Simulated assay, not measured.
Amino acid sequence: MVGIDVKRIGDALVIHWQMSKIEIPLSEIKEVFYDNTYAGEGKDAVRIGTPYGTTDRVVISTHNRPYVLFTTNGVNLLNRINSYIEETNN
């Protein structure tokens, strides 16, 4: 598997990266947005992926903590996560 893989399984957003699997209940997600800082927002954020200077940073803000996804396909990832959230709300 290359890069970050994001899927919706049931009512959860499931993120796979290397040997890690992170499940975030869709109901816990407050917002999803781009972060232009190098290290990502917040010291308590869970960082997923490899940060490079040109890497996109997509932040998933939840009720518990933020998650920063370092990826080369930020637009696709952001749109996919937002579509999962919209499907849940409809």
Results as ranks from 00 to 15, higher is better:
H63V: 07
T50K: 13
T50S: 12
S83Y: 04
K43R: 11
V68Q: 02
G74Y: 00
T71M: 00
K43P: 09
G74C: 01
H16L: 09
D56I: 01
V68K: 02
T71C: 01
M19A: 10
M1G: 15
S20W: 09
R8K: 15
N76Y: 03
M1C: 12
N76I: 01
Y84I: 05
H63D: 11
T55F: 02
T50M: 09
N76C: 02
N76S: 13
G53N: 09
T71I: 00
M19W: 15
F70P: 00
G3T: 00
E28D: 15
H63W: 08
S27A: 14
L69I: 02
I60P: 03
R80G: 03
A45P: 07
G49V: 01
V6R: 00
G74I: 00
G40K: 04
H16Y: 11
V32N: 08
N73F: 02
A39I: 09
K43G: 14
E41G: 06
Q18R: 14
A12I: 05
E28R: 12
V2Q: 11
D35G: 05
V75L: 10
Y67W: 06
A39V: 08
T37M: 05
Y38I: 07
V14W: 06
T71E: 00
F70N: 01
K21A: 07
S61I: 04
G42D: 14
Y84V: 05
I60C: 05
G49A: 03
V2S: 09
V46S: 12
N73T: 05
A39H: 14
K21I: 10
E31N: 11
I24G: 08
S27F: 11
I22N: 14
E28N: 14
V2T: 08
D35W: 03
L77G: 00
T50L: 12
V14R: 09
D44C: 06
I85R: 15
V59R: 01
V75G: 02
S61A: 15
I15M: 04
Y52C: 03
G10L: 04
R47H: 04
G42W: 10
G49D: 02
R47P: 02
P51A: 07
V46K: 15
P51I: 04
S27Y: 13
P25D: 10
Q18H: 13
T50W: 10
F33E: 14
G49T: 01
D5L: 05
N82D: 13
I15R: 03
Y34T: 07
N79I: 01
F33T: 08
F33I: 06
T55V: 07
G40P: 11
W17I: 03
M19G: 10
